[in-house]
Simulated scan of single mutants.
Amino acid sequence: MEKWAFITGASGGIGSAISLMLAQKGYHLYLHYRKGHEEIEKIKVRCEQYGIHVVLIQADLTDLDELQNIGRTISRMPDVLVNNAGLTHYGLFTETRIEDVEQLYQINIRAPFLLAQMFTPSMVRRQFGRIINISSIWGMTGASCEVLYSMTKGALLSFTKALAKELAPSQVTVNAVVPGAIEGKLLQRQFSSEELGLITDEIPMGRLGKPEEVASLVWYLIQEDAAYITGQVISPNGGWYT
């Protein structure tokens, strides 16, 4: 039987790696994006080379109407939901604006909650489903000058644990993948090459992670072999935080 996965933020580094991994494994894909039209078109072409169907869904997840309209625009509810889209914020706690609080809440907390709420009824009916929330190492440990981001990503972990308990009787698993420092444009925008070198020096493995390594973990959690794993917070971080 064909399987479908819905991936938010699919045009980014981790999102595109997850998309390609699931395409290779035969999953048909709903790929959400907001602005990266050229990037998502390239990803779509690469995924379709594996003989699967790809449906692109453009939506601003801060817009409640656009978010809620997603469920009305897809023809087949997904078996897998990967809540990968996220928004960062860097700055002093005392200078954080209410607009920043609202925006990170909408993207990092409200969107994963509402998408899961949208898709779980069909998972429950099928007695199969996988929800994977992509959080951040700062959701586990907290980070100075990233208090708002840490707070929202930490909330995503509590959501994961609670929802896992509620859906377990229906054979639907819910887990969180919590990447450490992963190569890609996000880190390059946030840190200089010198700062990235200092971060790398702190990581016992001596390197940054790769998006494909995060994607491999996501794939494992989707498989039948992982059916007894739920409510877990798993962090690929090279031993940076244990």
Rank of each mutant, 00 (worst) to 15 (best):
M1Q: 12
K3T: 10
S11K: 03
G12F: 02
G12Q: 05
I14H: 02
G15W: 02
G15Q: 08
G15R: 07
S16N: 11
M21Y: 00
Q24K: 15
K25V: 07
G26M: 06
Y27Q: 03
H28L: 07
H28M: 05
H28C: 10
Y33W: 02
R34P: 00
R34G: 01
H37D: 10
I40W: 07
I43M: 09
I43N: 02
V45K: 15
E48W: 09
Q49V: 08
Q49A: 12
G51H: 09
G51R: 10
H53E: 13
V55E: 11
A59S: 10
D60H: 09
T62V: 06
T62Y: 00
E66C: 12
L67N: 03
I70C: 07
I70H: 02
G71V: 09
T73E: 03
M77W: 08
P78V: 15
D79N: 14
N83K: 10
N83H: 04
N84I: 14
N84F: 08
A85K: 06
A85S: 11
A85P: 03
L87A: 12
L92G: 14
F93N: 11
F93Y: 14
T94F: 10
E95W: 13
R97D: 12
D100N: 13
V101E: 04
V101K: 04
L104Q: 06
Y105T: 13
Y105V: 12
Q106W: 03
I107L: 10
I107F: 04
P112G: 08
M118Y: 00
M118V: 07
F119Q: 07
T120K: 04
S122D: 11
M123T: 07
R126W: 01
R126E: 02
Q127S: 13
I134F: 02
S135A: 15
G139F: 06
T141I: 15
G142S: 07
E146R: 14
V147P: 02
L148A: 12
Y149N: 05
L156V: 14
T160P: 01
K161F: 05
L163Q: 02
A164I: 05
L167D: 00
A168Q: 01
P169Q: 05
N175G: 04
A176M: 04
V178L: 06
P179S: 08
P179M: 05
P179C: 10
A181D: 04
L187V: 14
Q188L: 11
F191R: 05
E195N: 08
L196R: 14
L198D: 09
D201M: 11
E202H: 06
E202S: 14
I203N: 06
P204F: 12
L208K: 06
P211Y: 08
P211H: 10
V214W: 02
V214Y: 02
A215Y: 07
I222R: 02
I222S: 03
E224Q: 12
D225I: 11
A226R: 08
A227V: 13
I229A: 11
T230K: 05
G231Q: 03
Q232C: 12
I234P: 02
P236K: 13
N237M: 10
G238I: 08
G238P: 04
G239C: 13
